[in-house]
Design a protein around this nucleic acid. Structure first.
Length: 236
DNA sequence: CGACGTTTGAGACTTACCTCA
DNA sequence: GATGAGGTAAGTCTCAAACGT
């Protein structure tokens, strides 16, 4: 019989003595509390294939390792509990790295979106220019030099508006459209449609970083405003 | 290098709950 | 349906070993 076995015999006797004072029992068991390497190795091996033991198997394992069935049962209980904790830790780490990846992707997309919005606004302003010019034509705004009616190229008398930029607009719908078509490559209706799109986009969440995606991303990702440097630390 | 305090890992226990005969 | 035995998960206690000072 090996040293460990000898211990286990004594230990088992001590443990099985339910009437024995708890403190006394623990004090006696201090001599060699831990299972031998061999015993642990065998238990680990069994645990790998089955995390629960049938009562019969438990008795068999206990006999083979020179332990009490109760010791084997407790070992498996503890093993399951601690294994579960480790698994949770692993899952938590996976989730955390996934979250980090998503957060960085989100930041990239946010920047991309911002540059797109800026570009959209720039384009929008470009679009507004001809409109403003049209407005000047109607209202005789400052900076617009009005000349008297002139003979047009087709001989008709037309009101002529000479802009500071040197672009000449006439109060002739067709002519106006022609100019627009010439300068911008689309007709009034197309123009209107595009402006609608731009205006809609301007009103929508696209221009508001707070509303983008229907939720306030900043509140989720702006960790500086939180009491916890990282949200997951809430659980730690 | 030994003494001492702290941390960690593991065996055992307690309690509450569930299943089954 | 009530009951007791047996099992489990979760939480806790305890202590040896490892580690840092």
């Amino acid at each position: 019989m090996e040293e460990g076995d000898l211990f286990n015999c004594c230990f088992s006797e001590i443990n099985s003595g339910m009437t024995m004072n708890k403190k006394k029992m623990k004090k006696k068991s201090n001599n060699q509390k831990r299972f031998s390497e061999e015993q642990i190795k065998s238990l680990e091996l069994i645990f790998e294939s089955e995390t629960r033991l049938e009562p019969r198997k438990k008795v068999q394992v206990a006999r083979e390792l020179g332990l009490q069935p109760r010791q084997v049962a407790i070992w498996f209980q503890n093993k399951r509990a601690r294994w579960k904790t480790k698994q949770l830790e692993k899952e938590y780490n996976i989730l955390r790295s996934n979250y980090n990846n998503l957060a960085s992707q989100f930041e990239i997309m946010k920047k991309e979106k911002q540059s797109l919005v800026t570009e959209l606004q720039r384009q929008n302003e470009e679009m507004q220019k001809p409109k403003e010019e049209k407005h000047h034509e109607c209202c005789g705004d400052q900076g617009v030099a009005l000349s008297s009616s002139t003979e047009s190229h087709n001989g008709k008398s037309e009101p002529e508006v000479r802009l500071n930029q040197g672009i000449v607009l006439c109060d002739d719908g067709d002519y106006n459209n022609n100019i627009k078509t010439e300068y911008f490559g689309f007709e009034e209706e197309t123009d209107h449609e595009l402006m609608n799109i731009v205006e809609k986009a301007d009103d929508s969440c696209l221009t508001s970083s707070e509303n983008w995606g229907g939720f306030n991303s900043d509140s989720l990702l702006d960790q500086s405003s939180s009491n916890y440097p990282n949200w997951w630390e809430f659980w730690s």
